[in-house]
Design a protein around this nucleic acid. Structure first.
Length: 219
DNA sequence: TACGAAATAT
DNA sequence: CATATTTCGT
């Protein structure tokens, strides 16, 4: 009969067909990048300023809180119908082209292959990873939890597990010895001022890494 | 089922 | 050769 159920697999994350998903996608696109956000570990209001203005100490905002809030927002977006009578245009300016890539989404080239394309951990994605791991603590930093808190669509548990394995090895190796020039993403030189990819990219796509000369030659 | 170490692939 | 995926034992 028909061979239509063939490519049922790839339709997962890349293709947004539903209006609800579109709304969520738009919301995600509007989110500021990791570079423009204050780390959760860092108080929004400096202690001195807070004291000067009689601002009560910040509530214990944790990543879990953020996660819950995020889930609540997503749920609301999905439930609430357009309900924008009159204004059918986009709520906020969207520089984003189609593709569904916002601050966080792991896309893969949808070329037919049962093998998942190599995921490239961009500095931004890695930063998010490190942030989550740091706040979870080395004890609770397990792939499943990490993946939940990162909230990156398309990111699989295997991806995180693999990266976590490398990250742990890096941390262990890092003890005692100074930083190694061989480190790319793990070394404490996260984001330079140059434009780097905002989304995880796969082989085939052009991605730019910021490299330190590479003239060292020692190993 | 999920985690993690090792093997395998790119 | 570095890094990501897959396999496999727990």
């Amino acid at each position: 009969m028909g061979e239509e159920a063939v490519d049922d697999y790839e339709l997962h994350m890349v293709c947004y067909g539903s209006d609800e998903d579109e709304r969520v996608m738009e919301w995600e696109s509007g989110l500021p990048g990791a570079d423009e956000l204050t780390p959760l570990s860092q108080p929004l209001v400096p202690p001195g300023l807070a004291a000067a203005f009689r601002i009560p100490p910040e509530p214990g905002r944790t990543l879990l809180d953020l996660h819950r809030a995020s889930e609540a927002t997503v749920a609301r977006l999905r439930r609430a119908p357009p309900s924008s009578p009159g204004t059918s245009s986009s709520p906020h300016g969207h520089q984003e082209a189609r593709g569904g890539e916002g601050a966080d989404s792991a896309a893969a080239t949808t070329t037919n292959s049962n093998r998942r394309p190599r995921l490239v951990w961009t500095p931004q994605l890695h930063k998010r990873f490190v942030d989550v791991v740091a706040h979870l603590g080395i004890k609770k930093a397990v792939p499943k939890t990490i993946i939940e808190l990162m909230n990156v669509e398309g990111l699989t548990r295997e991806n995180v597990a693999s990266h976590l394995q490398k990250y742990r090895l890096y941390v262990k190796r890092m003890r005692g010895q100074g930083p190694s020039p061989s480190d790319h993403i793990f070394a404490p030189t996260p984001v330079h001022g140059v434009a780097v990819g905002m989304v995880p990219m796969v082989s085939g796509q052009a991605y730019h890494y910021l490299y330190n000369g590479g003239g060292g030659g020692d190993r």
